[in-house]
Design a protein around this nucleic acid. Structure first.
Lengths: 240, 240
DNA sequence: CGGTTGTTTGAGGACGTTCAAGTACTGTGG
DNA sequence: CCACAGTACTTGAACGTCCTCAAACAACCG
């Protein structure tokens, strides 16, 4: 394992607060793989053997229900581990992991990670925080799937990638449109049309790059059209 | 705080592995509220003041994107805490919590919970496991939203409630149809029609109770019709 | 018992998928 | 360097599903 990789690992939120010796123990038998786009880290249904940590690159978590189709549930980037819940609980993966942008992957023994998690408070704490942050991402996605029609859903996704609150923003879409489409819960055709419709709201897409003319304007558009399952579910809170 | 409540609290997966004195510290200033259906524990956007633990009853986590609509993201039952991620990170709630079946709620100071989480390995471990289990539920829901049409989606939900692998099963739907509909990402009308269509597959609903004639038959139906965003997202893994 | 609220059913329409064809892009071999 | 194949993305037309609106029905509660 190279020093550069060790430095990258140290920066991950999971490991940042570990004592040097605790980190060393975790990384003792760990190794790094350099994987090209298209590589599959593990498959849905398998039992976790490693905790994979993305040192660089981009990975899609994809999953299916039948053998038929499968969709991207979420993309993960440098610094993120895959997939803590399956490793922690030692349960079969609910998702497969596929590299979508050439990646360096740190592989840590799943069993070792579990035992260290049981011993090291700092690690358990970091895992709790990391899982908490990821939970919130999933909640957001579920809300967007249920409340937003296809076009505003794409808009919301772009907004979540934009750093600024208002003004112009450029966003890079590393992954293929085909994959992005399933992440957003639509077909590639619908995604294409959604991009076309966003043009009227100051969004221009060219290749990997998307330009948002005015972030606040796009946000206004997104918030103005819920359109999917619009009915509100709560009556006025009638405390009887 | 009554002894009966203390006993219930001790059984929660979060607290089960705690030393008695650690649990005592956590519960020192804690108290219990008995809340009727319709009560709102906290609202989206607020900062967490307590970690709420459901001792009995049922709670819906509902959220919106605009002021317009809001949907149920998930239901939680006795033993589950609400909502660990927001409390851990001390970030505003992404969801509101509404009681859907009369509940007893244990309220623990959020600040105290955070400090104990930073001190008690057993607590941090339990939190990691709990968050991991919840993560998996959300993943499942996202997959079902993206891959299943309305009717099979309801079928999959019913199957997840049925204990048995095959044979007859009875399932209780505690919550109003209106709420269940949004949990499943559809309107009440669509839910009603979905139930009607499932009748042809051995599912009969009457009031709170749903009867599945033959679980394996329903599962076969669910798995045979993906129908939403059917396109597969992955090509054959072409390692170049 | 009437009013309110929640659920079901029907008809019409919007949105997104499907299927099919056309266009742009990428890498390969001539 | 260009022709070409392969792939991905786009665009168009038809269809189906689900949403919307409206009304009837059932259940609950004062």
């Amino acid at each position: 394992m190279r020093d550069a990789d060790r430095t990258l690992a140290k920066q991950c939120s999971l490991f940042r607060d570990l004592q040097p010796e605790a980190l060393a123990r975790l990384l003792e038998d760990a190794f790094v793989q350099s994987l090209p786009k298209g590589a599959v880290l593990f498959e849905q249904g398998a039992r976790p053997q490693f905790l994979h940590v993305i040192l660089s690159g981009r990975v899609a978590l994809v999953g299916g229900l039948t053998q038929e189709g499968s969709v991207v549930v979420e993309f993960f980037n440098a610094g993120d581990p895959l997939i803590v819940p399956a490793v922690v609980l030692d349960l079969e993966y609910l998702l497969s992991a596929e590299v979508v942008a050439d990646a360096r992957i740190l592989m840590i023994s799943a069993a070792l990670f579990r035992t260290q998690l049981d011993r090291e408070l700092a690690l358990a704490r970091a895992a709790t925080r990391l899982l908490s942050a990821h939970w919130r991402r999933l909640i957001l996605q579920i809300k967007q799937l249920k409340l937003l029609a296809a076009t505003p859903r794409l808009g919301a996704y772009l907004l979540s990638l934009a750093r600024t609150e208002n003004g112009r923003a450029r966003v890079r879409l590393n992954e293929e449109r085909r994959l992005l489409a399933t992440r957003l819960g639509m077909t590639p055709e619908s995604l294409s049309r959604a991009f076309a419709r966003l043009r009227d709201h100051g969004v221009s897409a060219a290749g990997d790059w998307v330009e948002i003319e005015e972030v606040s304007r796009l946000r206004r558009y997104v918030e103005s059209r819920p359109t999917a399952a619009r009915r509100r579910s709560l009556a006025a809170p009638s405390a009887k």
